[in-house]
Design a protein around this nucleic acid. Structure first.
Length: 271
DNA sequence: ATTTTCAAT
């Protein structure tokens, strides 16, 4: 918190359309603007929006996702879901959520029991390992996460900017979408290293305190389970389930944010 | 590394 951030809420806009300019400034895979825009809708079983709008981050105070989740919680608090109904939240975000936001999303979903689709325009600081891992965990916990395709941009534009204007993609958008899709797919397929090998690091503490990684009460951590998910166990391994968890793993290089040493994310089958 | 990434000397 800083004293200069006056609490005038210029970050949340309910049932208001975006200008075309705002859309293109933010949903832009070329410029990495230093703000985030999240468009959201909450729909019922029928394709009828109960609540919709968009939010920017509150600079230095809160990320955009947090602001959106709070608004959704507020709405759901006074409009509880009917028994036979199922709310669905759709988000179009200009950046992928960071670890903290992933955790808040998870807490929100545990409480509200809604379905969530998360469409992202570009990756936020993917050199920070935590941002990758938390996306992986969030997906594992049931959030449908994807990078925006051209069709998604069109849909987002149609829904949040103008239903009649024609969406004009910026240059190279199609190629960028494809690349994002590949990057995300790579992330889904990446094998993640067991947490017990991780050396002292502020990130480890952050993860250990994170509900995102501990809330299903399993003694093993999310990392091991994710790893097992991504590969088909060999026949002889099935007889000895414990052998699936590798004991010796390659050392992990931790990234100092300043030094920028890339940490190792994946490894080949440990034999 | 694809690095000016949810800003701010």
């Amino acid at each position: 918190m800083n004293i200069f951030s006056v609490s005038l809420d210029m970050t949340m806009f309910i049932k208001k359309l975006l200008s075309e300019e705002e859309f293109h400034d933010n949903f832009n895979t070329v410029d990495f603007v230093k703000k985030t825009l999240v468009c959201f809708s909450l729909e019922d079983k029928k394709p009828l929006w109960r609540l919709w709008g968009y939010a920017y981050n509150n600079p230095g105070v809160e990320h955009a996702e947090i602001i959106v989740l709070r608004e959704l919680s507020k709405f759901l608090g006074s409009n509880p879901m009917k028994k036979d109904s199922q709310y669905k939240v759709t988000l179009y975000a200009t950046y992928s959520p960071c670890l903290n936001c992933c955790e808040e999303i998870w807490k929100f979903l545990q409480k509200e029991k809604v379905i969530m689709n998360l469409n992202i325009s570009k990756f936020y600081n993917f050199y920070d390992y935590d941002n990758k891992i938390s996306l992986k965990v969030l997906r594992k916990k049931g959030v449908e996460i994807k990078t925006m395709t051209l069709e998604d941009y069109k849909a987002c534009f149609y829904l949040f900017v103008h239903p009649k204007e024609i969406f004009q993609p910026c240059e190279e958008l199609d190629a960028q979408c494809e690349r994002n899709e590949i990057d995300l797919d790579d992330l889904w397929n990446e094998v993640v290293i067991c947490m017990c090998e991780i050396e002292d690091d502020i990130f480890r503490r952050k993860r250990q305190n994170s509900e995102l990684f501990t809330s299903d009460g399993d003694e093993n951590n999310a990392f091991i389970r994710l790893q097992n998910d991504t590969k088909t166990p060999k026949k002889d391994e099935q007889k000895e389930p414990q052998a699936k968890i590798p004991v010796k793993l390659p050392p992990i290089k931790y990234m100092d944010r300043k030094e920028g040493v890339k940490r190792k994310l994946s490894f080949d089958e440990p034999n």
